[in-house]
Design a protein around this nucleic acid. Structure first.
Lengths: 243, 243
DNA sequence: AGCTCATGTGAACGATCTTTACATGAGCCG
DNA sequence: CGGCTCATGTAAAGATCGTTCACATGAGCT
């Protein structure tokens, strides 16, 4: 197998041409496999077919590579949340729930990004660019909360949108961190993380006075009601899916 | 400074006498300073004044040391939650809120334990002992949720206690992880993590039908109402403390 | 007193991170 | 086309770390 490196070099010549990108991709793969702690700079270099010193032409040190990945992660995260929110279409509440699901989906499908963003142990506030990217992602949640707060029923003091956003973020992050990834930190659950978070958000919104006791067919008009689910009363509440 | 090691050895002789404990303590200090990733086995040995090979008499490898710390962390965590819960005295709801505060307090005051428990990246389910300790800690939250669920107002389907417990855990963990530690992962907040979590839990409980619009003096009878807090209406809601 | 075994030492190996001096060649300028 | 320059990659080396192995020590038991 030792011909690999030479062959690669023969293929590409002395200069790689796109090393920075290749390193980021390699690091992403490695973090996905072994977590941000298990990832090594030398491995990424090997995977890209260059010498262990080459990466230092593109990243000051190992931490800067991880920070770059976190940065890119926040950008994709923002994009995913934006798409899920879809500016509140077709209605604010269901769009809001889509955002929660998108949060979990991102944590599950991009565990490498997620752990680089939240579990790599690097100080968020040390890197202003990183901090800004993180805040842009949170701004989506905040904007959604803003729209939701505006819909709050009258007759009660209107909840501060910032607080709502922080609450939703904490719920999503808590569920994702504790139960969200398939393999790591697995704990037995009576329901899926998605359903768990959806119930939590619905209960929370009801606590703010939002009417949330919709029937399933009001939420997904095209979907026939499942036959194996017998309702437990006049309405089955947000936790209707619990085991 | 190189006399230190020799002097220590002269003081203690060939055998340390309490190395395992000394290593755990040293590791705890180091993790507290530099996070679970920055901590090195050799450093812990140095700090205990022994050779780099000595720790292997007490821990199979570096991961086992971290797992031991996580284990001990879950035990202290369980103890802290048990004490906060105090079997639901004086009343279930206020005891429940004390548990949430204890969660945050633990995360803030024992960041080394907390990160070893939740952010060290070691698979929870690989170590049955660790898993069991984790579940004993969660059992406190579950027991509290059980008692709370029993108090749920009639006229509605009773919420599953397990689900409530998971929700509360996720909220606490989310707030603690995102905003709970003084230095790491700091983000600007309009209110303290404690108040943020308390409001979140109260809104959630209200969503389950619990009456939570108590006035401050019903909660802490001995405490006079603060003068700088002007109520915003007939009752100021769970987010009365928000900026 | 002597044996035994848990505990600690020293030396060594391979891997990693990082720096330093040197090599290569792509792009530009005349 | 020829040569210059600088970004990019390499090789070698030092420091540190995780880990293992053979060996040393001495505490506790018989």
């Amino acid at each position: 197998m030792s011909w690999r490196k030479d062959e690669r070099r023969a293929e590409r010549g002395y200069h790689h041409g796109n090393l920075k990108e290749a390193l980021l991709q390699a690091a992403l793969d490695l973090i996905g496999q072994k977590g941000p702690a298990g990832f090594t700079f030398a491995d990424a270099a090997r995977m890209a077919g260059v010498s262990p010193a080459a990466p230092y032409r593109h990243f000051r040190d190992r931490d800067e590579l991880i920070a770059s990945i976190a940065q890119r992660g926040f950008e994709q995260f923002e994009s995913a949340l934006t798409q899920a929110w879809d500016d509140g279409r077709p209605d604010t509440v269901s769009a809001f729930e889509r955002v929660g699901k998108a949060y979990l989906k991102f944590a599950r499908e991009e565990p490498a990004f997620y752990s680089a963003m939240f579990e790599s142990g690097l100080p968020v506030d040390s890197n202003p660019t990183l901090m800004a990217a993180s805040e842009r992602a949170f701004a989506i949640i905040r904007a959604a909360a803003e729209r939701l707060a505006a819909l709050a029923p009258p007759g009660q003091p209107r909840p501060p949108a910032m607080m709502m956003a922080l609450h939703i973020w904490a719920m999503s992050h808590g569920v994702a961190s504790l139960f969200g990834r398939g393999d790591a930190a697995r704990r037995k659950l009576p329901m899926s993380p998605e359903d768990l978070l959806e119930a939590e958000v619905l209960i929370y919104l009801r606590g703010l006075g939002f009417p949330t006791d919709r029937k399933p067919d009001e939420r997904k008009p095209a979907e026939p009601p499942p036959l194996d689910e017998k309702p437990s009363g006049p309405f089955s509440g947000p936790w209707g899916k619990a085991k």
